[in-house]
Amino acid sequence: MIELRNVSKSYRTSTGFNHVLRDVSIVFPTGHSVGILGMNGSGKSTLIRLIGAAEPPDKGSVYRDMRVSWPLGYTGGFQGNLTARENCRFVARIYGETVEYVERFTDEFAELGDYFDMPLRNYSAGMRARFAFAVSLACDFDCYLVDEALETGDARYKEKFRRAFEERREGSSVILVSHNEQTIRRNCDMAAILHNGSIEMYDSVREAMQHYKFLQTRAA
């Protein structure tokens, strides 16, 4: 379970303070895939960084009783001038995993072939996403934080990744942020909407979708 208690976060911009989250409290239960819908600029990435402890909240606290991944995205966490193998080693070391195992697993799962020993900056977006997911699976987290990136890569690989998640679903959770309803509908069994600095959890994905559509039409 991951719980946010009265979390507030704002950034200073040239035009004053931008309040991304205002006094947000929400519980992400274990064993579920929760999708967080939000329009561009609504603070999705900030939220996922707070959940993953990549940033501290201004106010309130984030409670985690599980091993949470770093926010998986297109680039997050990796050094473009190092190869996939070298990045693997770095991740394995900071998480205290066996370096050889993480390397081997990632190499097999990501199916990067010769690219595994080439610098990440030569990768396509899809390959980067494949690599990021494979490394995170190798580390065997209890909760995976995903920032948008699920929609990259070919259909076969997406399917492979989804199956890997299904296998782990028993004890592990996924928190996925996206502005894309399709992504959430396909991958999640719960959904929340982030809008105007507050977040609301819905019992069913369908219900959340309906409300999200309503918000979008109102915004347009």
């Binding site: 402890a53 949470v68 966490g77 990796f78 473009g80 770095f90 998480y95």
Partner: peptide
Amino acid sequence: GSRSLLAFPQV
């Protein structure tokens, strides 16, 4: 140079 690494909470 190491901004991307700060995505890892322990770094």
